[in-house]
Structure formats: structure tokens, C-alpha cells
Design a protein around this nucleic acid. Structure first.
Lengths: 125, 125
DNA sequence: TGCAAGTATGTAGTATACTACATGGTTCGC
DNA sequence: GCGAACCATGTAGTATACTACATACTTGCA
């Protein structure tokens, strides 16, 4: 079990951001009932995994709300199997769309590069 | 030459957002000097192209500032050929990173789906 | 034991990207 | 020629995602 500082060191995510994510319901740590002198919160390895997932998902343009959907689909017992699978299938479609769009952007930039290399300017100005 | 309303209809981007993008320096329309009764702004087909590019680039997590870099690399005469190509190469690397991350997220979600389908819950709770 | 470093809680401020609203002028169709 | 629809400008508000700061308590080490 880790304290927040260690969590931050392992993931590179600032402590303030981790607290913000926790407050947003993306995961939660636990207080140890055997410790009564303080109210420090401890986090398991699953939180490190979730943080890494959040990092990746954010980097490709998912919002925290969207990421929370996926995390809930995996961790919340209250949600039915069918509902979970629906959420995940929707995300997979979204991801494929994003990959398609990235390839389109890549193509555009490559074309743009080619034109610059060959001294071809834009149509206007 | 199009007015802002037509631009909005062609791209599906709200007028307010288009104005915001223009104010952010992503592109600019022009006033027609032969028209003196109003100060309507007209946009060329290049603006439609830029808007579509912005849409795609935003969908995959690029910020307007990052998008502006690319647009400037293509349209600004003041920037040297070398500097332009550097910007574009950096973006291409970023895009490849994003594609890699999307594939990693996809793998994670597929695994998550597999586990749910087979009734395997998460380690904790 | 003293004090730097770590932790919790809460509030406020910032950056980005819109979004809405108010005002005032213009154009177009009937 | 009049009203609906459109245009420009400006200001303010909202949502998201942090980021910083103040306060106060706790821990660990010299």
C-alpha cells in the first residue's frame, strides 16, 4: 500500500492532480483502521494501473467523464454485465474513429510537408 | 466567397466557435472593399479546409495552440522552410505516439471486455 | 526535541475552449 | 417598407481540468 507521494513518483502525476482525480470519482484510496493517529490514505496497485490508464486515455483526447465510464464499467459491481459491455463497445468504436482521424491528420501533414519541400505554397495569399 | 453562416452550415461548427477560432488566429476572412454599406467578412474555401482540419485535430486531442502551429507552418510566409518542416515533423511524431497510445488503450479495453465476458472481476473489492 | 518533509482539507485562481447575451446595424423576401 | 433573418462587436458566463495557497496536523530523523 502506497501513500500519495509514492503514487505521484511512480506515475509522474502531480499530487494535486491525483487528489483531483480521486475527488472526481476515478478511484479511491482507503484509510487504515489500525492507524488511529492520523488520517492518511493508502492506495493499492490497482490505483497505479488506473492512473496509467487515465494518462493514456487523456493523451488521446478522452475526457475524465469518458474515462470514468470505462473505469466504472470495470470496477463497479452495481452495473450489469450487459451495460458494462455496451460502454466498452462504444469506447472501442470511438477509439477506432480516433485512429482513423489521426491517420487523416497525418496524411494532411505529410502532404503539407511534401508541398513545402517542393516549394509549393498554399493556394491563397 | 462565403459568409460565416454558410461556413457554419458546411462544417457543422457553430458560428460562435468559428468566430472564436478566427480571434485565436487560426485563420482570417476578408472584408470586400467594393462593399461599403456593411462590414461583412467573407471566407474562402481554404477556411473550410482549415475548419475541417481543426475538427479532426481537436478530436484526437490536439489543442488549438498546437493546431495553430501546424496552420502557421503551412500558411505563414514569414516562417522559414526549415522551421516549418521541423514543426510538421514534431507533429508527425506526436501523432504516431497518439496512435500507439490509442492502440494500448484499445488493448486494455479489449482485455477488460474479455474478463467481463468470462465473469472475471477486478483484483480488488 | 525540534524541525523539515509529508499529509488532509478547503478555497481560490488559472488556462483552455467554448457559449450565451446584449446591442446595433444590414439584407432579403413578401 | 417592414419584419425576420443575418452580420459584427463586445462582454460575461460556463465547463473542464487542473494548480496554488493557506491551514493544521503527523511523521521521521538528527
Amino acid at each position: 500500500m502506497k501513500l500519495i507521494n509514492q503514487l505521484s513518483k511512480e506515475t509522474g502525476i502531480p499530487i494535486g492532480t491525483i487528489r483531483f482525480y480521486e475527488k472526481s470519482g476515478l478511484f479511491s484510496g482507503e484509510k487504515k483502521q489500525e492507524v488511529t493517529t492520523n488520517n492518511y490514505v493508502y492506495y493499492g496497485d490497482d490505483v497505479v494501473e488506473k492512473l496509467r490508464f487515465i494518462q493514456m486515455a487523456k493523451a488521446v483526447g478522452f475526457t475524465l467523464a469518458e474515462i470514468k465510464e470505462v473505469v466504472d464499467a470495470w470496477y463497479k459491481k452495481q452495473i450489469s454485465k450487459k451495460a458494462k459491455l455496451e460502454v466498452l463497445d462504444r469506447k472501442l468504436v470511438q477509439i477506432d474513429d480516433k485512429i482513423k482521424e489521426l491517420k487523416a491528420v497525418k496524411k494532411q501533414i505529410a502532404l503539407c510537408k511534401f508541398n513545402i519541400e517542393n516549394g509549393i505554397g498554399p493556394d491563397n495569399n
